[in-house]
Simulated scan of single mutants.
Amino acid sequence: MPQQVRGVIARSKGAPVEVTTITIPDPGPGEVVVKIQACGVCHTDLTYREGGINDEFPFLLGHEAAGIVEEVGAGVESVTVGDFVILNWRAVCGQCRACKRGRPQYCFNTHNAAQKMTLGDGTELTPALGIGAFADKTLVHEGQCTKVDADADPAVVGLLGCGVMAGLGAAVNTGNVSRGDSVAVIGCGGVGDAAIMGARLAGAGTIIAVDRDPRKLEWARELGATHTVNATDEDTVEAVQALTGGFGADVVIDAVGRPETWRQAFYARDLAGTVVLVGVPTPDMQLEMPLVDFFSRGGALKSSWYGDCLPERDFPMLVDLYQQGRLPLERFVSERIKLDEIEDAFHTMHAGEVLRSVVVL
């Protein structure tokens, strides 16, 4: 029968989030109820609260999560009750034109639960990225659950559900960073630092972190950056070129997502180098550049969606690397908080004081 649990919602644009009672329906065909163990506080959740995604309030926030499968609906085959899973917002369909062309990381028809979770009065909730995991339990499609080793710390590996995977995948999957490459990352928050970690994992020789915050630059160095550039004091393009023999980096990753940072990334790369945009721009942003520069410099200009990941392929592998001590994902967990501390965590995150606050349930 339907369950009543705690959940954190954004009731209207800009209003403080609140903990309230929500209703989780019994799972239908292809659906799964997951008992949440931990969920990271991601900037996307704040963007939902501010109305930056859409206006389908009220939102059930939270999406970087891990937990235990509690119930399964009819026809569910990929997970069973008791499985430890990381939730993801790309549940590939296997049938769309991208999937059929062997590019499931670009699936155009990802699955979410068909049923809606609701407030006590029946008001339907919009779950953040189709997940809604700032809650004791949530309802998702089975394809949004990726089974991993149950011995892993949920507060750590749950972060693969969004920001860490986005950054790490931007380097490894989208940027195709390989051994000996030079890499520059503009913006050293959680996503940017994950890109730095990914570049290090791939064997990059020179890894340049660019930011305006000395604290973030220190975090970046701890996570694998070989050089740092304070963009307040130095010209980003000139500094990256100086650190790469005057040529520019083989791969430049823009983890900010603004016209000025993308332009810096474009000119800070070597001829025929690669630019990867993983920071998310707002709809009003415009880019104006000489077209001849695109032609004369060659190379590749890419956008990275969720680190171009395949959760069922990438999550178990990365969890294994973490447990072997080869991928220090635990460094992203700055603090562990309670469900009723999320509003404070938004302020802490906005001030750049943490890489990730993680709600532990």
Rank of each mutant, 00 (worst) to 15 (best):
Q144H: 11
F134V: 14
A128L: 13
V164G: 12
D121L: 10
H141V: 09
Q144I: 11
V156R: 09
V156P: 15
K147Y: 10
K147T: 11
V157M: 01
A170W: 03
G122P: 15
L119W: 08
V148P: 12
G130N: 10
V156G: 10
G122V: 03
E142S: 10
I131M: 06
A135H: 00
D149T: 03
L125T: 14
D151P: 05
G167C: 12
H141I: 08
P127A: 06
L168M: 01
H141L: 08
D121G: 15
K137D: 01
F134A: 13
A128M: 09
I131G: 05
E142V: 15
I131D: 03
E124M: 08
A133E: 09
V140M: 00
E124T: 13
D136Q: 11
P127L: 00
A128R: 13
A152V: 09
D136H: 10
G161A: 03
T126A: 14
G163N: 03
G120N: 13
G120W: 06
H141K: 14
G161P: 04
G130K: 09
G143D: 07
D136M: 01
G163I: 02
T126H: 07
V156C: 12
G158F: 05
V140P: 15
A135M: 02
A128N: 15
T118C: 10
A170C: 09
D153Y: 01
T126R: 10
L159D: 06
A170H: 08
G130E: 11
G143H: 06
D153C: 06
G130A: 12
E142N: 11
L119G: 13
T146C: 13
A166H: 04
A170M: 05
T138E: 08
L160M: 10
C145Q: 11
L168E: 01
V148K: 11
D149N: 13
M165S: 14
G161C: 01
I131Y: 01
H141Q: 07
T123Q: 11
Q144T: 03
L139A: 05
L129Y: 03
D151L: 11
T118N: 15
T126I: 07
C162T: 12
V164P: 06
A150Q: 10
G163E: 00
G122T: 11
C145H: 08
P154G: 02
G161W: 00
F134W: 08
A170S: 13
M165W: 08
T123H: 11
G161Y: 00
G143K: 04
G169P: 07
L160C: 14
L159T: 07
P154Y: 02
G132F: 04
L129S: 00
P154D: 05
I131K: 09
T123P: 14
L125K: 00
T138W: 02
L139E: 01
L168F: 01
V157Q: 01
G120F: 05
P154C: 02
G122E: 10
C145L: 14
G130Y: 07
T123S: 12
D121H: 08
C145R: 09
D151S: 12
L159E: 00
G122S: 12
L119V: 02
